[in-house]
Design a protein around this nucleic acid. Sequence first.
DNA 1: GCGGCATGCGACACCACATCTCGGG
DNA 2: TGCCCGAGATGTGGTGTCGCATGCC
Length: 411
Amino acid sequence: MGALCDFCAEQRSMVYCRSDAASLCLSCDRNVHSANALSRRHSRTLLCDRCFSQPSIVRCIEENVSLCHNCDWNGHRDSASASEHKRQTINCYSGCPSAAELSRIWSFVREFPSEDDSNCEQGMGLMSINENWASTCWGEPGSNSNQDVIMNQMDTMDKFNPWIGSYSASSANALQNRAQQADPMQSTAPKLCGSGTKEVEIRKSDFNEDFQVDDVDLTLEDYEELFGGSHNYSGQLFDDAGIDSFFDLKETSGANSNCQGDIPEESSAGCIKSRQQACSNGADPLPSNPGSKADPSASFPARQAHSSLSLSFSGLTGESSAGDYPEMSSMLLMGEPPWYPTGHECSSFPAANRDSAVMRYKEKKKTRKFDKKIRYASRKARADVRRRVKGRFVKAGEAYDYDPLCQTRSY
DNA sequence: GCGGCATGCGACACCACATCTCGGG
DNA sequence: TGCCCGAGATGTGGTGTCGCATGCC
């Protein structure tokens, strides 16, 4: 039995709307997202069958369950047999499709009740089933945002798999190995990376494209700051205090760590906090002014030189975009590929645990600071359709310059 | 090195009103 | 104890404004 619908609290929730941060039953999903043109653009996907709290990104054919990235990763990473499970990416959708349409795009789900579509104002006219989107397609494809990076990665995953729109753990591992083996800053030679089921040739140019190196936000140095100081503390990452306690530890011990030798005198937590502020800026992920506060690499020249793995993960981070792309922030976290730097002197940290810790840390940080939480969806819906003058709400009936129900704005 | 100016960016106020909360009957 | 009612508080999003930080001359 899954979670109840966040809206009616009666029906079992089936889909997850990231824009509303809500799990909804199909009926409420259609009602809520047929309210206006804006809400119709919300991208939704199936709810994870395991945690019932995150949007699912893949369908495990073997287990016949839809899984979010976290549950997928946790459920398939360890067992050799489980890792070979065939998984199919789950498309998201917008608009207010009928049950039949949903059944068409999610053919594996047999639970869609047939409902009358009459309550949808414009029905399928505005519906856009994003067949070509990967499971991490929150937002509009083609926009210059972090999700493109995710899309690239998902596309990359598909390349490793003979059947379109799906991937297996082996291919994910291949991608991971690809990230681990390729040194984008130096080597350009092709490398072979065994996937377990298929060998693929790794071209560094592809790798670089996927990584969006220039899009600086959270670099691997952050990871080193977070987890690289002394991995003897790894166990403490998994207690309730999570990464926060780790910060405390690092503040007291980081100076003596091999990995912290080049760190400026300010505390690691302080560094990260300042970076978060800079990253949360997000309005201009590519600051035109090098050396500005939004350029973390410029703030840490010593550490930049310290690590040859100063790749940017900016496109994958939640904090970089949560403010600007709230509807996709969580998805970014969940969709983050399970790679991480290896070969570093401090990389004795178990890889899987480390990835899990990173994910948990980001999730916690997101909910703590960067995700605007909509407490009352009804009020949001009301505000979405309320008319404004220069951004201010106006009385009903008064002249207005912004009609949210109209696609084109007049100023 | 210092001051003035320009620029960029974050924080915040503003607006209406449906909804929520809470105390009293 | 539970219900009802009314007053007050709350929250919602787009835009403009202000102040601070930074860079340049």
